[in-house]
Amino acid sequence: RETFAMDSVALLERVSDTEPWTCAGSVGPRPLGRPEDADVDMPVGDHMALALSGRVLPAEDRRVLAAFAAQAAVVLDRQRLRSEADQARSLAEGNRIRTALLAAVSHDLRTPLAGIKASVSSLRSEDVEWSPEDQAELLAGIEEGADRLDHLVGNLLDMSRLQTGTVAPLIREIDLDEVVPLALVGVPDPELSVDLDVPESLPMVSVDKGLLERAVANIVENAVKYSPPDEPVLVAASTLGERVELRVVDRGPGVPDEAKDRIFAPFQRYGDAPRGAGVGLGLAVARGFVEAMGGTLTAEDTPGGGLTMVLTLRAAHADRTPPTALDQPLIRTTAQRGRSA
């Protein structure tokens, strides 16, 4: 339109000679709806035309316009191919998620349900007289299965919220030592499996307390699953400029560089996952929640072997004065509590 000093230009197309013209793209006021109404009509193939209004062009300008029209048709085809490819990827991703959900229902959800049902049936049986020890063991199995179900369903719901964009963080200033100990409640034997080092002098962070607690819980639980039984996971926090960094360090098998980003995708479990390791949503949910709060979650190699998850958050007040002894939260670091239960 600018090159040829036109009022309007429209790229028109139709499916066949008997079908009406439709506008694939236009610029300028009152674009034309038919090539017959144009001051300049430049056909592009059998069913496409460039329709210009404003003035009649000399022959030499029409030759240049033909190149413009051909290029416009190529760009339109490329856009449509890209859109079709995006739709195909979206359909493939949907199919992959549905397949993973079926696998989750058939195994990861079905297994604890089967254990719960077996334990309940045993307790209700009148043919066997269970000792108090046996009853306690069966009840513990029921509780463990229910906890696994609650965790799996919670992660499925969280991922659904992330994918539909319904996560709305309530950002406020809190201390990390208010959140991290709460996130360890669901970890088996946290006193033995986790070493905690969260200094009370850290600046406050601007986060959603609930989302951060869930993210840290998923990260730590994942690290504990892959760590050797005699190697506790280290959860350590420190200040990095205007940000606060929380590192979850394990001594497990680690992850190669080319797979470090893939482990954050939904339904991904790298390598031979431990039995009962879940549907592979924990790290995906954790990263989604952290990014929703304006933070980052990345994976690094642990020196000497293993994987380190690095959670970085905004510091609310980098120059915050450390709390006094009266208002310090009660939290025991590794040096204070040792390794005893």
Rank of each mutant, 00 (worst) to 15 (best):
M309D: 01
P35H: 10
A237V: 03
V290S: 02
D150A: 15
D208H: 07
L240I: 11
D301I: 07
G28T: 10
R243H: 09
L11D: 00
T99Y: 10
G282F: 00
Q87I: 09
D86M: 14
G28Y: 07
L139Y: 13
V198W: 07
R62V: 10
A325Y: 10
V179T: 09
T22E: 15
S119W: 02
E178N: 03
R62S: 06
G288A: 01
A215Q: 01
V27T: 10
G94T: 01
L81A: 14
V187N: 00
L182S: 14
G210E: 13
S119N: 05
E300K: 03
V290G: 00
D17W: 08
V74C: 13
Y226D: 04
V64C: 07
A316R: 07
F264V: 05
D261W: 10
A38P: 06
A49W: 12
L202A: 10
M42C: 15
E258H: 15
V244N: 00
E245S: 08
R337S: 06
A59D: 15
A146K: 08
L81E: 12
E213I: 04
E178C: 05
A325G: 03
V248W: 00
A335V: 11
D257K: 03
S53V: 09
L91C: 07
L91M: 13
L176C: 04
E133G: 04
E213K: 11
L123K: 04
A236E: 15
V167D: 04
V205K: 06
V194K: 06
A104C: 12
L234Q: 13
P190K: 08
A318F: 07
K225V: 05
A277I: 04
D150S: 12
T308R: 12
S83V: 07
S53H: 10
A51S: 13
V185F: 07
V56L: 08
N95A: 15
E2P: 02
